[in-house]
Design a protein around this nucleic acid. Structure first.
Lengths: 233, 233
DNA sequence: TGTACATCAGTGAACGCGCGTTCACTGATGTAC
DNA sequence: TGTACATCAGTGAACGCGCGTTCACTGATGTAC
C-alpha cells in the first residue's frame, strides 16, 4: 500500500484521512461481528458518531465501502503471507509452502468474516470491480514463485502427463508464470491451492465437526502431504 | 424420504400437504434467485398467493423454512450422487469416484445457491438443527463405501505413514467407517473430498476467472489425478 | 343420519424495526487576489 | 496581511421500501355422539 506522491497537508486533508480510516475500521469491526450481508452504513455511521448521510462524503455508496474492505482483506492476507514466506530460506521449498499454508490458515481463523468475504460465496448483488484483482493475487503469486524455483532447480521427478485439452484449459495462467514451469506443475499448484483454500473453508464452515477432532494436527499433516504431492519434498 | 405410516386421508390433510409443497417449492425458487440471505417469508407468501401470516400455519418461523430447504438440498444432492454411483460396476473404483465427483459438480452448477447453502459460508444467525446431519452425510457415505471396498481388496500399494497424533485427530470418523480402512486411507479420502468441494466452490465463486479457461476439462483432469492419488487407479 | 362442537386455514391490521439514499441547509476551513 | 469567495464536512428531515412476527377474528372442514 504505497502512499501517493503528495502527503496530506491541510488540516482538512488530515481530518479527512483520519475519519476515512475510522469509518473503515468501524466497518471492519461490523463485518467481523455481523458478516458482509449485515454490514450497514447507518450502523457504521452511528458507531463513528456521525449522521448516516455524512458517510456519503467519504464513500459514494455501501458497495464502495465493501470494495474497500475486500481490498484491505486481500492486502492484509497477502502481506501476512509475504512476511511468513520471506522468513524462510529460499532453497527450502517445502518450508516456504508450509509457511504460506499455515499463515493463510491462521489469518483465516482470526478473520473468519473477512475470509468469507474474499473466498466465500459472493455477496449477492455485489460485483467486484477490477481494483480487487491486484491485491487478490498477492498470495497466489508467492506460490507461483515456489513453482518457478522448483522448475528452475530440476523440476518434478515423476511428471504426470497433461493432455492437449488440459494444457489449453490452463492456458490463461501461462501469462503470469515463468515458461519454465510445466503444465504438470501448474496443475499441481492449482490443486495444492484448491486444497489449501478448501481445507480452511470447510473448517471455518464447520464441516469437519464430528469428523476431525484436532484441526491443527490434521492441517499440518495434510499440508505436508500436499508438499510431497507437488514433489517439493 | 420415506413416507410415514399413514398416508394423508382427509381433504384437509391433502390440502395441507399440497400447500406445504407449494411453499417449499416457491421458497426454493426464491433461494435460487436471491440467495439464502434474501429469502423472505413475506415474498414467498406473496408468490404463493396468501397473506404473510398464513405461512405460520405451515412453518413456525423463517429459520424452519430454511432448515427444510437445507435438508432438501442435502437429499437432492445425495440422491443424485447415489443414482450416479450405483450405475457403475462395483469393482470399478475410479469409475465410482469419477461418477460421484462429476455428479456433485453438475448438481452444484445447476443449484448454485443451494450449494452455497450447504457448503458455503453459514447463514449468519442461523444454527443448523440435528435433523440436517443425516441427509448431510449421504454423499460422503458413498465415498466411504469406495474406501471400504478398496481396503477389502488389498488397500493401497504405497501407504503413507500416519503418526500417532494425526491418527487421534481423525479418530471421530472411525465410528462411521469399517475398521479395515487404514488411517492413511482415511486421510486420503478426506483430502479427496476437500479437493472436490474446494474445486467446485472456487469455480462457483468465480476464483478461476482468468485462470482456467475450460473448467469441464480441468475438473475432469484433476479428479483423475485425485483418483490416482487415492490409488483407486 | 343429523346435529353440536372442536379444530384448523387463512385474513387483515398492526407493532416495531432497520435499511440506502437524497436534499436543502449551516458553519467551518481553504484559497486567490 | 486582510478580505471575498469557493469548497467542503456534517446535519436533520424525509422518501420509500421491506422485513419477521403477533393477534383477534371469520368461515370452512372434521369428529363424536
Amino acid at each position: 500500500m504505497p502512499e501517493p506522491a503528495a502527503p496530506p497537508r491541510t488540516a482538512r486533508d488530515r481530518a479527512r484521512a483520519e475519519i476515512t480510516r475510522e469509518i473503515v475500521n468501524t466497518a471492519r469491526a461490523h463485518l467481523a461481528a455481523h458478516g458482509a450481508a449485515g454490514l450497514s452504513l447507518r450502523a457504521v455511521a452511528r458507531d463513528v458518531g456521525m449522521v448516516s448521510s455524512a458517510v456519503y462524503r467519504y464513500f459514494p455508496s455501501r458497495d464502495d465501502l465493501l470494495t474497500r474492505l475486500i481490498i484491505d482483506a486481500y492486502n492484509s492476507l497477502g502481506a501476512a503471507a509475504e512476511a511468513a514466506e520471506s522468513a524462510i530460506r529460499r532453497t527450502d521449498l517445502p518450508g516456504r509452502w508450509s509457511a504460506i499454508a499455515h499463515c493463510v490458515r491462521d489469518w483465516a481463523l482470526s478473520h473468519p468474516q473477512e475470509w468469507a468475504l474474499i473466498y466465500g460465496s459472493p455477496v449477492p448483488g455485489y460485483v467486484a470491480p477490477i481494483d480487487t484483482i491486484g491485491p487478490a493475487s498477492r498470495t497466489t503469486t508467492l506460490l507461483i514463485g515456489i513453482l518457478a524455483d522448483l522448475a528452475s532447480t530440476g523440476g518434478v521427478a515423476r511428471p504426470i502427463p497433461v493432455n492437449r485439452r488440459t494444457r489449453a484449459a490452463v492456458a490463461p495462467i501461462r501469462g503470469s508464470i515463468s515458461t519454465k514451469v510445466s503444465d504438470d506443475l501448474i496443475v499441481r499448484g492449482l490443486m495444492a491451492w484448491t486444497n489449501l483454500v478448501g481445507t480452511i473453508s470447510l473448517e471455518i464452515n464447520g464441516q469437519f465437526h464430528n469428523v476431525i477432532a484436532d484441526m491443527d494436527i490434521y492441517f499440518a499433516h495434510s499440508m505436508q502431504r500436499i508438499a510431497a504431492i507437488i514433489e517439493l519434498s
